[in-house]
């Protein structure tokens, strides 16, 4: 759950998250541009001490708070409730 709050906190730097649900597709809602994507990758690597590699580059890993939390969980070996 902490992952999700942190992700939401990061998102709130870029767009309003009050109405954003954990499963909402941020790509479909038009929140994402390439610069945001880079900042997100950089932030994930620093915040969670993980390395995002080419095999992680799948929209499904980044398109919602749930998806990103799941990716962090897999990279860190922890369980994330979705």
């Amino acid at each position: 759950m902490d992952y999700k709050n942190k992700i939401r906190g990061f998102f709130s730097r870029f767009f309003r998250t009050n109405d954003l649900k954990d499963g909402d597709d941020i790509f479909a809602q038009g929140f994402v541009n390439s610069l945001f994507a880079m900042q997100l990758v950089g932030w994930l690597e620093k915040e969670f001490e993980i390395a995002i590699k080419d095999e992680d580059l799948d929209i499904k890993n980044f398109n919602s708070i749930d998806a990103i939390a799941g990716l962090i969980g897999r990279k860190t070996g922890s369980v994330v409730e979705v």
């Binding site: 390439s34 610069l35 994507a37 880079m38 990758v41 080419d54 580059l57 799948d58 929209i59």
Partner: peptide, 13 residues
């Protein structure tokens, strides 16, 4: 390199 569709947002940037 990387996945298709990530050439700009990942590799180029």
């Amino acid at each position: 390199i990387a996945r298709r569709g990530f050439g700009a947002s990942s590799v180029a940037l």
